[in-house]
């Protein structure tokens, strides 16, 4: 019996470790499943709700509406506090209405964009985050909610916590935090109706909500001439091609499945040293780079820490395989 005692202890430890591994895997699988359901709920549910967006000292209340009518997806986001900015989406067309300024109509260059992102990028997410489903439920906007935490595995991204409706997994609250836990941005619903009476007229810009329409040039898909020497784990280019904006600007998009970094490259005549703009969760960086005696202005915008933007700006180089 005495001989078997160490063996017993070893087996017990093995069982404990195994149980923890299984529990972690289960938690990750459950978290991914909840996130997947959350993503899909935005496009499958009908809803009309009001949420508060707070960032640093700014706070805005917004109204969001969504419905499927005759197989067409309608969505609108309306600023209730400030300048009455309204963003409309009808299937894959996004229309941003800025009162007394302009009406911008942009079509996504890689349809069907929204359909493409109705699933979560599980592999990328697992490379960047540990996922934890909180055991306790809480109450947000009068509804029971389950909580999922995404803890970053490195310092190149922020942490997230989602509170999802217990019944339909709709997002009720989202916190974005620094790695030390400091809150950067919060989105929280104060009320939401999942049985709204919406009509097509609710998704048409009001006649007096803008002064004159200005249509942006249709963005084009162009060959991507740039690549990165380094990317944080889980980050990858979302589009294989670049997107050509007006005035010769190419846009690339990086994402780790949870957050994204936009990259803009354009020719310039003027050298510019590194500049950084900190807007709470969003960081913008700008600098010029010299490639074969040609100057390019590089601008990056993303919800990632400042060192990530800085390092990415040093890591971009011309692609070696382009013609």
């Amino acid at each position: 019996m005495k001989v078997n005692l160490p063996l017993r202890i070893f087996c017990l430890l093995l069982c404990c470790i195994g149980a923890n591994v299984v529990k972690a895997d289960t938690s990750e699988a459950e978290a991914l499943n909840l996130l997947r359901n959350m993503t899909q709920s935005f496009s499958t549910l009908s809803y009309d709700g009001v949420f508060v967006h707070s960032e640093a000292l700014n706070m805005n209340s917004m109204r969001i509406r969504h419905d499927l009518m005759a197989g067409v997806e309608y969505e609108s986001l309306e600023d209730l506090d400030g300048d009455k900015v309204e963003v409309l989406r009808i299937q894959d067309n996004v229309i941003s209405v800025y009162p007394n300024a302009l009406l911008t109509n942009r079509r996504t260059p890689l349809p069907p964009m929204f359909n493409r992102f109705k699933n979560v990028e599980s592999e990328r997410l697992l490379k960047g985050y540990d996922m934890i489903v909180e055991p306790k439920t809480s109450r947000i906007a009068g509804r029971d909610a389950v909580s999922v935490r995404l803890v970053p595995r490195d310092n190149y991204r922020y942490g997230h916590q989602f509170w999802l409706d217990k019944d339909n997994h709709f997002l009720l609250k989202h916190d974005m935090m620094k790695t030390d836990g400091q809150l950067l941005e919060r989105i929280q619903f104060t009320s939401v109706n999942f049985d709204p009476d919406l009509k097509q007229e609710d998704f048409v810009p009001k006649k007096d909500s803008y002064s004159e329409p200005v249509l942006d040039a249709q963005p084009r898909r162009v060959k991507n001439l740039w690549q990165f020497d380094w990317l944080p784990d889980g980050f990858a280019l979302v589009w294989p091609e670049a997107r050509s904006l007006d005035e010769g600007t190419s846009m690339l998009l990086l994402s780790d499945g949870m957050t994204s970094v936009s990259v803009f490259v354009e020719p310039t005549m003027k050298a510019k040293k590194l500049s950084i703009l900190d807007m709470g969760a969003t960081i913008a960086g700008e600098r010029s780079i010299n490639v074969n005696e040609h100057l390019y202005l590089l601008t990056m915008v993303g919800e990632v820490p400042e060192p990530t933007i800085e390092r990415l700006m040093m890591a971009i180089v011309p692609r070696v395989d382009h013609d």
Binding site: L35, M38, T39, F42, S43, F51, H53, E55, N58, N60, M62, I64, H66, E75, S76, L77, D79, G82, D83, V85, V87, R89, V94, S96, Y98, A101, L102, T104, R106, T108, M113, F114, F117, K118, N119, V120, L171, H174, I187, V238, L245, M251, L253, S255, M258, T259, S260, S262, F264, M279, A281, T282, A284, T299, V301, G302, E303
Partner: peptide
């Protein structure tokens, strides 16, 4: 560029148009 980023982020992070809430905190000057 900030607006372009907010619009594209809305398409990639699976939260509907909620990320576009950031657009309203950006100044509007053309």
């Amino acid at each position: 560029y900030l607006r372009q980023h907010a619009e594209q982020a809305a398409m990639t992070v699976g939260q509907g148009m909620i990320p576009m809430a950031r657009v309203v905190s950006y100044p509007i000057k053309e």
